[in-house]
Design a protein around this nucleic acid. Structure first.
Lengths: 342, 342
DNA sequence: TTGTACGCGTTATCAC
DNA sequence: GTGATAACGCGTACAA
């Protein structure tokens, strides 16, 4: 260590305020009484010097980083905006920092995740950003975690927050069937290994079954929660001679846009000939000239809840093992209804 | 310090591998030769112990955090998704972490920004997240910064990356005038203190002037880059007896949606009676049933460039003082054109 | 109420 | 090529 640091430290403050570093520390952390006049002196010197405690040193001494990590698979979807927004707000309100990182467990098995015990006090893990093995390891060492849009494996008691997928999916498909008389309904799958997609498909099947409609695997289309992929797949479906259909349940709103575009390309009138519904109620969904009938997912609240759960754990409280946020279907016009938009 | 830490340290590795901590450190950082067999031993022990170096300790010793901060005013807009995505990618590729934080300089004058020299090696500052005074202070202490969507005050030589606003705005208004014969064009302003909005307005004015159309302040509407605000303002405008108009240049696509909705509510046909154009080419803009004529802003690249600039600085290289990314107008249908959508 | 001194986990500087 | 060991800046027993 040769290079004398030129940054100002607590020692500089102490010297100028003519007290010990301990006193300055106490003043900063307000964890022990400091006489008013000394406090005044310290405060003034700190302001003069623009002193800000060095985080790393603090972390090392405290063994707390005051920051929490968010582990995502990708940042490509607008879906993440409300999630991030909600999480950041809660985290910031509690004077913590937020580290945002992407990680594809399947791609980088040899590298450790970019956020973890070494640089955060806890992490929020989205969907399948982490593999079970990694979850298990952190679980064993009691590292605080909260899962979002994913349930933990049964033997790992990790708190999670997710949304109600199945019932709402079933309801929206019910609507297609009962109100609009649709019976040949396509489902565009989301990403594999993504529970949301899985549950939505189950809701879809449940509805079909309840109405005595046979499940036809030819009506299941790949979509990956991606507008472009869904557009391609839907177009391919339409191009070949395909089974009849009269509705599409897209696994999310973004895919629904891909579906609609493919349908438009093919000259199939929506919603007259084919009803289209989605999931999420994204930012754009209500404003489309053909407003989307969809399921409202409280994504921002998922972010907030994840934040408050992880903070609870950090404060030594027990987190709720499971937070299941309600969803509701919102009927607009892409299904064929003609209600006023909301 | 009472609580003996149970985390495994470099010392544990050293002991088990039967070498000194210095050697382990050398192995980890590959900054000095280590005999192959020793390397092998260390490597094995590290894997067994799941050892990950403690970031804070490293930071303290190195005086480098290996993380960069992103300072935003808010995360409410989908606009940030590509920005964040681009930035995160570059940052991660260079083995750095990304701290995302919001800060409203105007609201919390007494609190220091959540990211800064104390916990990052450098920050990317969006628009007016920071006040000049703070910029100046960090500049004086040589703290690495890159501004995005903002130019630094003239006396602060801070690198910035932003997009070409004025020329594109002028071009899109030219289009309205020259191709569609519009002459009474509304501009919905973005946020105050936001340079993008400012430059877009200048482009708007330049176009008017070039065509000999008088500037009418009554045609300037508040919008704040927000769909809802713009909707309200536009509706209010329409409700009172207002001057004639035949087109709207919205300061961003999100506002354009608010405009269109207000117009729809009022029964004014778009684009027949009124052309509407936006700015940004957001994710949803091309898929609208009335695809939006707008300006394509390379927001993801702004993120990437900001990342590479700040990393350059961290590596001791000089950053480009200014990075001005080109924009291009994309003609779709909301202006009245009937081109195929892209 | 205040000060002294040690430890947090790592890097880097010496010697060897 | 390797091993001791002093920093890095801060928090906190413990003593006063």
């Amino acid at each position: 260590m040769t290079r004398k640091s030129h940054s100002i430290t607590i020692r500089d403050v102490a010297r100028q305020a003519d007290v010990s570093v301990a006193t300055v520390s106490r003043y900063i952390n307000r964890n022990a009484p400091v006489s008013p006049e000394v406090a005044e002196r310290i405060s003034k010197v700190m302001a003069e010097l623009n002193y800000v405690p060095h985080a790393a040193a603090r972390h090392l001494a405290t063994r707390k980083t005051r920051s929490i990590g968010l582990l995502l698979t990708t940042i490509n979807y607008d879906f993440f905006t409300p999630l991030l927004s909600g999480l950041e707000r809660v985290v910031a309100e509690n004077n913590h920092n937020l580290l945002v990182a992407t990680y594809r467990a399947d791609l980088r098995k040899d590298y450790p995740p970019p956020v973890g015990p070494h640089n955060t006090d806890g992490v929020v893990v989205f969907a399948d950003a982490l593999q079970e093995e990694q979850l298990a390891q952190w679980y064993r060492m009691n590292f605080p975690m909260v899962l979002v849009h994913r349930t933990p494996p049964p033997y790992l008691n990790i708190p999670y927050v997710t949304i109600e997928n199945k019932a709402a999916s079933r309801k929206i498909v019910d609507h297609l069937i009962e109100v609009h008389g649709r019976r040949r309904i396509i489902f565009t799958r989301g990403l594999e290994n993504h529970e949301d997609s899985h549950w939505r498909e189950l809701g879809y099947k449940a509805s079909l079954e309840a109405h005595g409609i046979p499940y036809d695997p030819r009506l299941i289309i790949r979509g990956e929660f991606d507008r472009e992929v869904t557009y391609q797949e839907m177009s391919a479906f339409l191009a070949n001679n395909h089974p009849d259909f009269d509705a599409v349940f897209a696994s999310d709103d973004d895919s629904a846009l891909g579906v609609i575009r493919a349908l438009n390309d093919a000259g199939i009138p929506v919603p007259e000939s084919v009803s289209v519904v989605g999931f999420d109620d994204q930012h754009f969904s209500c404003i489309l000239p053909l407003p989307l009938t969809t399921v409202r997912a409280p994504t921002e609240e998922v972010g907030r809840m994840a934040g408050s759960q992880i903070l609870k754990i950090l404060q030594g409280e027990a987190a709720d093992p499971m937070t299941l946020l309600p969803t509701e279907i919102v009927i607009r016009q892409s299904c064929g209804c003609n209600e006023s938009q909301s």
